[in-house]
Structure formats: structure tokens, C-alpha cells
Design a protein around this nucleic acid. Structure first.
Lengths: 207, 207
DNA sequence: ACCTGAACACCGTTCAAGT
DNA sequence: ACCTGAACACCGTTCAAGT
């Protein structure tokens, strides 16, 4: 018979990332321990150290993988609405909000400073920059189609990203007041936020 | 002679909050342990449990105290620029940014979901809502003086807060690209962000 | 090369006991 | 009422050893 299994996995490294994402979704950041991740992947508590220098390195890998998925989703929505300039920005923003809501704790890990010394993880930095470049390109397309004011595209991209990112952060933190959330759907709130920086939309859109 | 000291403190509860803030500033969230806080306050590791149900309760108290200080700073700046409508919003936003930068890790604790089940801490909820009400009032004053578009003041307040909050979060997370940070000062970036939602400022302000 | 089991220092939390 | 010291379960990390 063939050698069946080397020890446990062909690819423990990715199995650990996957286990980490699952634990994050179930138990949140407070419940994410390296020992639990190892156990869920079916190996001893010391096995992860063959693939990750420490807990931070696993968190970096989880974040990096998250950025890859975010890029895929955002770029496919941007492509889909390429010929509908009036909707593209809003749909992209909405996809970003959904990404955050789909997996709140992974989003927090990516953006809330759980990962310290992020500079030490070049893949993490690269993936996060790739996402910003994408936003910048989308902003440039929206400036060309007259949906956004002209101006340095990286600064305008920062505004657009910031306004949606701030909204999500306040939302995830439960900082958005009850009365606001009762009056409008999340989708409407996102549109209202974004329309603040879009051109020719000085009318109120929500009451 | 008088009884000298009961055991150690007259007010261990506040001494623990203070010790927690100090450890947070020095060692960050990862270095904040209840045992270290107790030790810094000069008591045994079990003493905090006489004043806080658990570690989360101490974190809630630290956050609540942070919101109190934030309110004090924001409202005093708003008062100071009450008769200078063109500067008020920018100065308030700048004070918010400085508050975050002064004590990055405390800010993260307040806004990055380290505190789970925040609903269980009524003082925390109350202080955070008090801050939002303040922003709303400032927005209303700015609408009255023609600096901000009309519209439901709570939604506009959410936009203004969101855009600055998003900027800070991206900044603290190191997500703002090198090239952007080289071209403009933080102060200029904050102004650029805010001018996106202010009236009659369609010109570019930064190059 | 990849994984295990024992070991160490540290942590959150509980509890009986002391004043 | 306020605090201590011992105890327990859990955690991150290291290391000698096994295949």
C-alpha cells in the first residue's frame, strides 16, 4: 500500500490559516489561541511553529489572505459596473461593507491593529497596498466619468475609502446610534455617506 | 497616631484605571494584563476583583474614562471657535486626531472592538452617546453658518465623524501610503478630507 | 522536513482565609 | 469592606527526541 499520509497533512500551513479563520468567526479575537488552531487542524500544539514563527505570524497570514479575497471581490464588482458610472462607486463601497459584515472579526484583525509590527510582514504590506491602488484606479475612473471631483486621485481615494471605512468601524463598534439605524437601511446609509463626496448630489437623499 | 493606611489605597479602583492607561501607553494592548495592572498599583493579583468583575470590566472603565476626556477636549475646542465658523469644524476634527495620536492604544481600545459585549456597560454606552450628541450639535451649528450642507443632522454628523474616524484608523494601521504622507502634513490631510464634505470648496487644496 | 510530549513562564479567575 | 496566597485551567514558546 502507498504511504497513506506523511504525518497528517499535505499542507498544514494553509490548514492552520483556515482553522484560524473559522475560530475567529466562531469565538472572535479573544478566542483565537494557537493551541486551539493546532487542535482544530488535528496536530499537536507545537506543530504550528514549524510553519509560523509565532502567533503574530499566523495572524499576519490570516490578514494577508483576507486582503487577497477583498481584492478579488472589489475588483470583480468594479469590473461588473464598469459601464455604469453612476452605480460603480456605490456598488464597490457596498461590497466593502459586506466583506466587513461577512466576517467581522477577520475584518477587525485586518484593520484594528491586532497585528503589531506589520512592517515585518512584506506580503501583508504588499497585499494591502495592492488594494489601495485598486481604489485609486476606481476613483480615477469616477473622476473621468464626472462622478467625483477632480484633484489628486490618491487623496480623493483616501477620502472615499476613509468615509466608508469610518462608517464600518463605527458600525462594528456599535457606535452608530439606535435612532439613526432605525430610520435607514445600511445600504441607504452607505449611499448617503458616499454621496457627500460625489458631485451634483446636494439634495438630501434620506429622511 | 492615625490609622495611616487602610490597606494600600483610598481609591484602588481609580489607581487601577490609571495603571491600566499607563501600561497601555507603554506596552500596547498585547502587554495589558490584569496581573501587571495590579502589580503597578501595588496590590496582589487578586485585588482588582474587588472592584472589577473581570478584565473586560477594567477595559470598559478605561474606555469610559477615555470618552470623558474626549468630550472635554472636543467641547472646549468647539467653544473656543464658536465665533469662527470657517475654522470650527477643522479645529474640532484636528483635536480628535490629536486625541487619537496622543494615546494610540487607548484610542484603539475605545474604538477597535477590544471591548466585547459593550452593551453590558451602561456608563460606556452613555459616554459614547454623549460624544455623538456633541458632534451632532457642532454639525448643526455648521449647517446654520453655511459651512455644511443641510440634511438630517445625525446623518451629516455620521459623515463628518466617519470621514475623520476612517482617516485615523487607516493612519494608525499604517494603511496610508508612503507617497501620500510625504506630500502633505497630517493637518493638511485632515483639512482635505473634511473639505470634501464642506460647502463651496470644490477647488483642490493640496497638491 | 515535519511533528510530538514535556517543560517553563505567564495569564485570568476563584476561593478560603486574614484584618 | 478590602486585600492576600494558594490553586486551577489555559496559553505562548522552546527544546530534545522521534520518524
Amino acid at each position: 500500500m502507498p504511504k497513506k499520509k506523511t504525518y497528517h497533512h499535505g499542507d498544514l500551513k494553509n490548514a492552520l490559516i483556515k482553522a484560524g479563520v473559522e475560530i475567529l468567526a466562531k469565538d472572535g479575537m479573544g478566542g483565537l489561541s494557537l493551541r486551539k488552531v493546532a487542535s482544530r487542524a488535528g496536530v499537536s500544539h507545537a506543530a504550528p511553529y514549524a510553519h509560523f514563527a509565532d502567533k503574530q505570524a499566523l495572524i499576519a497570514a490570516i490578514s494577508t489572505e483576507g486582503f487577497r479575497q477583498l481584492y478579488t471581490r472589489i475588483s470583480s464588482v468594479a469590473e461588473e459596473y464598469k459601464n455604469k458610472p453612476s452605480m460603480q462607486l456605490i456598488e464597490v463601497a457596498w461590497a466593502y461593507v459586506q466583506f466587513a459584515l461577512d466576517d467581522r472579526d477577520r475584518f477587525k484583525v485586518m484593520f484594528s491593529g491586532v497585528l503589531e509590527k506589520e512592517k515585518e510582514y512584506p506580503e501583508f504590506v504588499e497585499e494591502s497596498q495592492r488594494n489601495f491602488q485598486l481604489v485609486k484606479m476606481i476613483v480615477e475612473a469616477n473622476q473621468a466619468s464626472g462622478m467625483l471631483r477632480s484633484g489628486p486621485s490618491d487623496l480623493v481615494a483616501l477620502s472615499a475609502w476613509g468615509i466608508i471605512h469610518g462608517f464600518i468601524m463605527l458600525l462594528l463598534e456599535g457606535q452608530i446610534s439606535h435612532t439613526v439605524l432605525e430610520r435607514a437601511s445600511l445600504r441607504e446609509l452607505v449611499e448617503f455617506q458616499l454621496k457627500q463626496i460625489m458631485i451634483g448630489l446636494d439634495k438630501e437623499s434620506t429622511n
